[in-house]
Each structure stands twice: as C-alpha cells, then as structure tokens.
Design a protein around this nucleic acid. Structure first.
Length: 293
DNA sequence: GCGTCCAGGTCTACC
DNA sequence: GGTAGACCTGGACGC
C-alpha cells in the first residue's frame, strides 16, 4: 500500500517526535527512518506493518501472513494517516515558528507531528504507564501488557490488547505480571468502564468540545492527572496545556534559566503563554530540539 | 548479593 | 483551595 505525502511531512521527524516509537507494539530501526507496528482489524485479525518513506510516498508493507480485503487495506491506510498525523493542519503553527528565530528549524524539518497509537485507549494506557516512573519502567509495563495479553504476531511482536481482555484480569494479576504496581486498579477501572460503556474514548480525537472540557473528561479517569491529561490532549491535536513533568522542568531550566532549577511550574506556564493555543507544541519543540540536531 | 535510598505523578485525607 | 503522605518500581549506591 502507498500514501502520497503532502510536502510538509517527514516520516523520520514524526517517528522522532517523542518516545512512543519505543513502546510496544511500535518499534523503529536504528536511524528512525522506518516504523513497524501492529494494526488490529478485529480481535483475531492483526496486520504487522512496516512503514517507509521514499520520494514523498509512504510505503506500507504487511509482514505477517494475513489476507486483507480492500476495505481492510483502506482501514490500515487511515490508521497510518491518523497515527503519523499526516492530515494535521499545522500551517498556522509553522507561521508562528517562522516569526521566532529560535523556532525556524521546526517548519524546516517538518516537525510538530506527534506520533500516536492506533487508538485513544492505547494512548491513555501508555500515558498512565509514564506517570511516576522511569522510562525503563514505562517500557517494561507496556511490553508486559502486550506480551501477556496481546496476540502473538511474530517473534517478540504482539498486538495491543483491547480493554475487554484487560478488564477480565484481577488487580493482583496485573500488579504481578505487568509490574505496574499501584497503577493496576486505575488500569482495571478504566478497562471495566470502557467495557461497560461508561467511558468512550475513541470519539475524543474528533471531538468539537472546548479543550478545557476535554481536559476534565481525561482528568475524570483515575490515574490521569494534570501532566498526563496535558500530554494526551497533544495527541488529540490540542496544545493549550503543557503537560509538565520532571524532564520538561530540567530541559526548561537548561534552555531558559542557565540550569537554575524551576521550583514553580507557573514560571514555565507563564513563559509559554505568549504562544497561545500552540503553547504546548512550542514547549515540546523546545525541549526536544536537541533530538533533531 | 543484599539492604537502603531516591526519583517519578496521582490520589486521598486532612486542615 | 492547598498540602502532606502514601502508593510501587527500578536503578544507583554502599557494604
């Protein structure tokens, strides 16, 4: 399958946008020029795909033994468009960046498209797994979740399990098998609420609700606090919140305070206020700028 | 190899 | 509304 790319898109920059490419079922090659992932079509049917870019065309190769109908091929292409944020309108953001000397590199390398998972549910679970722990532990929890509850697709590659599968497990099992500790009851509550249709996450990506309402919807999920909700909003395409964590504080102090530590997040928030609805994305660009050098 | 300490966000109880 | 303490794990460190 192929996707004709718009001029403003770079696969490498999208993969390198944040750490998601490193979390199962995503994986990338060393140079971050190719992305592998599992697209779930039904509970039993999954496609392991490898995405490459050449001459403004995205090529999607299916690497497992699965027969796809034309409709399923279209679904895969639509999922890829959504995950890589190919259709995200960033023209106004790029205009803003061109006016700021220290941000001119952003449109030049076509940055600003933050990689997201096939589903909002997967993004919420992974974001929950980033809270209050090291990146190493985030990886362990995600790997364990796919390996122990997903479907095996190839050697060491598993699908991301749906909420209904996780909902059948116990708090104790999740703690032990996923190493997710006190996050287990939060994960379980989320999955059971989705299964019982008390929560519906997937429509949030297309929602017209004001950002603040979306923020509070995300905050109503146990385990999703101010940091996690702010970063999930970025994966919906809303950049009004910063999603400040210890790493953002460290990078901000390096970039703007000559390494003097930031003790009050309102200092960071005040700094990015000048960028209006794009402040969250400007913040991501600044703190990840050294990744793109 | 073992024990101790620390870092990392969120929730809850309390003021 | 603000704040202290608990939650759990992996990694660093000292012995």
């Amino acid at each position: 399958m192929t996707i004709q790319l718009p001029a403003h898109f770079s696969l490498h920059t999208a993969i390198n946008s944040h750490g998601w490419y490193d979390l199962a079922p995503f994986s990338a090659n060393e140079g971050l020029t190719e992305l592998k992932c599992v697209i779930s079509l039904t509970r039993k049917k999954h496609a392991l795909i490898r995405i490459r870019e050449k001459n403004s065309v995205l090529t999607i190769a299916v690497e497992n033994n699965v027969r796809l109908t034309r409709t399923e091929q279209e679904r895969i292409k639509n999922s890829v468009r959504s995950m890589l944020r190919i259709d995200e309108p960033l023209e106004k953001f790029y205009s803003l960046c061109r006016k700021e000397p220290h941000l001119r590199w952003v449109p030049k390398i076509k940055a600003g498209r933050l990689l997201r998972s096939q589903t909002m549910f997967e993004d919420v679970v992974k974001m929950m797994f980033t809270t209050n722990c090291s990146w190493a532990l985030t990886k362990i929890q995600t790997t364990n979740l796919t390996k122990k509850l997903g479907v095996k697709i190839a050697d060491n590659i598993y699908s991301f399990p749906p909420a209904e599968v996780i909902a059948k497990k116990t708090d104790r099992w999740l703690r032990k098998e996923l190493s997710c500790g006190y996050r287990a009851p939060y994960l379980l509550e989320l999955c059971r609420n989705i299964t019982n249709k008390k929560i519906e996450l997937e429509s949030l990506r297309q929602s017209d609700l004001p950002t603040e309402e979306l923020y509070w919807k995300l905050r109503s999920i146990k385990g999703i606090g101010h940091y996690a909700a702010g970063n999930l909003l970025k994966l919906i395409g809303r950049y009004d919140y910063l999603g400040i964590d210890s790493w953002v504080r460290t990078r901000f102090s390096q970039l703007h305070r000559k390494n003097r530590p930031v003790t009050d997040d309102s200092i960071i928030e005040k700094h990015y206020d000048q960028y209006g609805i794009w402040r969250g994305l400007v913040c991501v660009m600044e703190v990840t700028s050294d990744w793109h050098e």
